[in-house]
């Protein structure tokens, strides 16, 4: 297992390196510049600004400087937000996203997994259709409808919950609900699929033939294997939710990481784009590794490749 992890780690580093290069050159080739301004800047002044951020150097040299800086842990300054470094921005917003993301995922698991189990066991009955339909609502309405809708109902009409900001625990509820409704559907569906696969195994038939009660079969024999797809999905889901909750962050005014992904690209904030891309890729690599480990742990028939 140590060898497996070491190998995957090395592979991950290569992936990160490749991603860094792709992003760097793609950004360099994109029109627009972080220094475009509504007020015209005279060319010689623009040259001064570019020189300050190292844009006067040839692309390859910039790539090398930027890569070595990154390797030493320094992502550079934001080219748009004066006196803030990329590390500052990530350090401020990542914990917020991590908190929101993990609470949302936890809630999504609590809704999705029971739904999926019931749906699989009572397949093609109303106990399958109704809970699955309800859980599906989260992926049939865009979050930018669900969010404002929840804010309208619970914030403005019922006046139960705060509608925006990120201060106390009650501020987490609405955004987390929006996100978890979205992810619950995936967990429900994955669990349903995984459980169905287990319930169709030969040993289940044998057990049924021997008269073992249905729920014993479900709990004792099928649950562990049936949850594998959902557990495997947890990793990518966490990476996705941390970086991709732009909509929810915008609607509920949460100072998370998601909006930086959009702002960086729209502002052409090159260093920030690079920093975020590397962070996201690293998250994906780590989460996939964890997912693989979990996968093997849950399924003894598999071995580390």
């Amino acid at each position: 297992m140590a060898k497996f992890i070491a190998l995957r780690f090395l592979q991950g580093l290569l992936v990160l390196l490749a991603i860094y290069a792709i992003t760097f050159f793609l950004v360099a080739a994109t029109p627009g510049s972080p220094f475009s301004s509504e007020r015209a800047i005279p060319p010689h002044i623009l040259a001064q600004i570019e020189a300050f951020y190292g844009y006067d150097k040839p692309v390859l040299e910039r790539f090398w400087t930027s890569l070595t800086n990154t390797l030493s842990g320094e992502f550079g300054p934001s080219a748009v937000y004066a006196n803030r470094s990329v590390t500052d921005i990530i350090a401020e917003s990542f914990p917020v996203s991590l908190k929101l993301g993990s609470i949302s995922l936890l809630a999504a698991l609590l809704i999705g997994i029971p739904t999926g189990i019931v749906a699989a066991v009572r397949r093609n009955t109303w106990l399958d259709y109704v809970p699955m339909s309800v859980s599906m609502a989260g992926i049939c309405l865009p979050t930018f409808v669900m969010g404002p809708l929840l804010a309208l109902v619970f914030g403005l009409i019922l006046r139960l919950l705060p509608v925006s900001g990120w201060y106390g625990p009650e501020y987490i509820i609405l955004p987390a609900a929006t996100l978890s409704l979205y992810y619950a559907a995936y967990f429900a569906r994955l669990t349903r699929g995984g459980m169905l696969e287990m319930l169709n195994q030969d040993f289940v038939r044998t057990a049924r033939a021997k008269g073992v009660p249905e729920w014993t079969i479900v709990w004792k024999h099928c649950l562990k294997g049936g949850l594998i797809p959902a557990i495997t999905f947890l990793g990518p889901a966490l990476a996705g939710i941390i970086s991709g909750s732009f909509v929810v962050e915008t609607i509920f005014q949460i100072p998370g990481l998601g909006q930086w992904f959009v702002k960086a690209a729209l502002n052409r904030d090159d260093f920030l784009i690079l920093g975020l891309t590397v962070l996201f890729a690293a998250l994906i690599v780590v989460m996939n590794l964890l997912a693989d480990i979990a996968h093997v742990a849950l399924n003894p028939r598999l071995k580390y490749e």
Binding site: P95, V96, L98, K99, S102, I103, L106, A107, P169, I172
Partner: peptide
Amino acid sequence: LATAIKAFAAQFSSSFLSVAIV
């Protein structure tokens, strides 16, 4: 970055607690 990572870790452990608080 190191301090940042420490901060993540702290947040992460507290996040599950906050579900209950919520």
